[in-house]
Computed example of a mutant assay.
Amino acid sequence: MTSTLYLVRHGETEWSRTGRHTGTTDLPLTEAGEATAHGLAHVLADLDPSLVLTSPRLRARRTAALAGYGEAQVEDDLAEWDYGDYEGLTTPQIREQVPDWTVWSHPVPGGESAEDVATRLDRVVDRVRSVDGTSLVFAHGHSLRALTARWLDLPVAEGRHFHLDTATSSVLGDDRGQSVVLRWNVPARG
């Protein structure tokens, strides 16, 4: 059985535009975010996915709808990393208290650990790998980067190597039995 996984990061929100960590806060897309999310329909036009999932957050669900996948099933395991006490803060603000902090290398007080994130994203990987064909997921920057690491059988912290812009698509798959990145960070077209 061959599985291909398309990843779509949601369109821009006010907090993603300003670099604020947005885990559980349910923000709408900005006007620009709506436009680029709609542009994803062109990038995804030739897909005929067997499975379409979305994070429960409004920004991901709205991106899915604007991209032509309003029927996407809500999957709680695709939610963004829970940033706990760091919700709404930027990395420079957090680093005023914890020098060199990153979500990949340091604890998140009141939020999720890397192990928690790995556990729930492993369930997504298992679900996608049980589908013969193409799956499509709409989610968030850190959760998709962590999902990529888990697809590649790497620790969640290795997600730090996969920069991901808003309103982009990426493709994961297999090459002769090896999990691989087929395309990465493809922008929407207007």
Rank of each mutant, 00 (worst) to 15 (best):
T2A: 12
T4R: 15
L5V: 05
L7W: 00
L7T: 01
L7Y: 05
R9Q: 08
R9D: 06
H10I: 03
T13A: 09
T13L: 08
E14K: 13
R17W: 10
G19S: 04
G19K: 01
H21G: 00
T24G: 13
T25N: 09
L27S: 09
L27M: 10
P28S: 07
E31G: 14
A32N: 13
A35K: 14
T36P: 00
A37Y: 00
H38W: 11
A41F: 06
V43W: 02
L47S: 01
P49A: 03
L51W: 10
L51R: 13
V52L: 09
S55Y: 08
S55A: 03
S55N: 03
P56A: 06
R61A: 12
R62M: 11
A65F: 05
L66S: 03
A67N: 06
G68L: 08
G70C: 08
A72F: 06
Q73E: 15
Q73C: 11
Q73G: 12
V74I: 15
D76P: 12
D82W: 04
D82S: 13
D82Q: 12
G84N: 09
E87I: 00
G88I: 00
G88Y: 09
L89P: 05
R95Q: 15
V98Y: 14
P99M: 04
D100I: 10
V103S: 11
V103N: 03
S105D: 14
H106Y: 11
H106C: 11
P107E: 13
V108S: 11
P109E: 06
G110V: 09
E115S: 15
D116Q: 15
D116I: 01
A118Y: 06
R120L: 03
R120M: 07
L121I: 01
D126I: 10
D126M: 12
R127H: 11
V131D: 00
L136D: 00
H140R: 04
H142V: 14
L144R: 00
R145S: 06
R145C: 03
R150C: 09
W151N: 01
L154F: 10
L154H: 10
A157P: 01
G159A: 07
R160W: 12
F162D: 02
D165F: 07
T166K: 08
A167R: 05
A167I: 08
S169T: 15
L172Y: 01
L172E: 00
D174W: 14
D175K: 12
D175N: 12
S179P: 15
R183H: 13
R183K: 13
W184V: 02
A188T: 06
